Computed example of a mutant assay.
Amino acid sequence: MSVFDLEGRKALVTGGAKGLGAGMAEALAKAGASVMIGDVLEDEGRATAEAVGSGGVKTGFVKLDVTDDANWAEAVAATAETLGGFDILVNNAGIEISSLVVDLDPGDIRRMCEVNILGTALGTKHGLRSMRPGGVAGTGGSVINISSVAATIPFPGISGYSATKSAVDRFTRVAAAESGKLGYGVRVNCIYPGLVATEMGLGLAADMEKLGLWPSAEAAVGDVIGLTPLGRLGEVNDMADAVVFLSSDAARFITGIGLPVDGGMGM
Rank of each mutant, 00 (worst) to 15 (best):
A217D: 13
K165M: 05
G23E: 12
I37A: 02
F4H: 08
N92M: 02
L28M: 02
M208A: 09
T198S: 13
K181R: 15
N237C: 06
P156L: 06
P193E: 11
T124G: 15
L233G: 07
N91D: 05
T120W: 03
V101A: 12
E81L: 08
G183D: 07
A17N: 06
K210N: 11
G141N: 03
A197Q: 09
S54E: 13
G56Q: 14
M265V: 14
A73H: 04
V196F: 09
S179E: 04
N189V: 02
G138C: 08
M267A: 14
W214N: 11
P260C: 09
F171S: 06
G19F: 00
S34R: 05
G21A: 08
G32C: 07
G107A: 12
D65H: 04
D262C: 11
G258S: 15
G15D: 11
G135M: 12
I37V: 13
A78Y: 04
L204D: 13
W214H: 13
V101R: 10
G212S: 07
A73T: 14
C190P: 09
S98I: 05
I191T: 01
G222I: 12
G194N: 02
A175Y: 02
I225F: 07
G15F: 01
G157N: 00
V13D: 04
E26F: 06
A49T: 07
G258A: 15
V62M: 08
I146N: 05
R252L: 12
P106E: 12
T124Y: 11
N91S: 08
I153A: 01
A175D: 10
S142E: 02
S247W: 00
L213V: 13
A150M: 08
T124H: 14
E96G: 04
G127V: 00
M239E: 09
G256K: 10
P133E: 06
D39R: 00
S34I: 09
A70V: 14
S248N: 14
V90A: 03
E42F: 02
D43E: 13
F171G: 07
N189D: 07
I109P: 06
A250K: 14
P106L: 11
S34N: 11
S179G: 15
